Amino acid sequence: MSFAPLLAAEPAVLLHALAAMTAFALGLVQFAAPKGTWPHRTIGWIWVALMAAVAVSSFWIHTIRLVGPWSPIHLLSIYTLGVLPLAVWAAHRHRVAAHRRAMITLFSGALVIAGLFTLLPGRIMHKVVFGP
């Protein structure tokens, strides 16, 4: 494993990947830690900011082009930017089930499933994990 391909990538890709990896790690902490505590809320706000950074930075990444410079992954970014404030609002309103559902959807869909596609041959993260 070598981070050299990632560190040599354009700034949007680097920001996107680092924010996604950090959000993944913090997401695991969030799922395992007690809920409703001040650490949960604090890490939650950091996680939301990281997910927003992942989604926004994706609009400067155009390696997969299906409709002009865009791909279906950009629809996921729009979805993420829409669901994040709804999930925060649900937590603020103490709608725990809606908050949990939104966060699990974002974590599993936007980070885990979409993240697995970055391991396909020819992608930067494939080079990081498996070598050139």
Results as ranks from 00 to 15, higher is better:
W45Y: 13
A90S: 09
A25N: 06
P39I: 15
R41Y: 07
I73V: 11
M103Y: 05
G68W: 10
R101D: 09
L81F: 01
L76N: 10
P69T: 10
F24S: 04
A19K: 04
L14I: 04
A9S: 15
E10S: 03
T63H: 15
V88W: 14
F31G: 10
A12T: 03
M103G: 01
P132Q: 14
A19V: 04
V48E: 02
G36N: 11
H16V: 08
L116E: 00
I61N: 09
L84M: 02
P132D: 14
T22V: 11
M21L: 15
A91I: 05
W89R: 15
L66Q: 15
S108E: 07
T118G: 14
A9G: 02
W89V: 00
L26M: 10
L84N: 01
L14A: 05
I43C: 00
M125W: 09
A98M: 08
F59P: 00
A98T: 01
L75W: 13
L75P: 00
V112M: 08
K127G: 15
S108F: 15
F31E: 02
P132S: 14
H74K: 07
A53G: 12
K127C: 06
V128K: 05
A32L: 12
P121Y: 09
T105E: 11
H40S: 08
S2M: 06
H74M: 04
H16P: 06
T22G: 02
G68D: 05
L111D: 06
S71R: 07
I104M: 12
L14H: 00
W70A: 05
G27C: 01
H16L: 07
A55W: 06
L7K: 00
S57R: 05
F117C: 01
L66C: 04
H99D: 08
M21C: 09
M1W: 11
L81Q: 00
F59N: 04
R101M: 13
L81A: 00
A53P: 06
A53Y: 02
H62D: 09
R93N: 08
P121I: 00
V88C: 06
R93A: 09
A90R: 09
V88N: 03
F24D: 03
L75D: 04
W47I: 01
K35H: 12
V128Q: 11
I73L: 12
I104C: 04
V83L: 14
H126A: 06
W70G: 02
H62C: 01
P72N: 11
W70N: 05
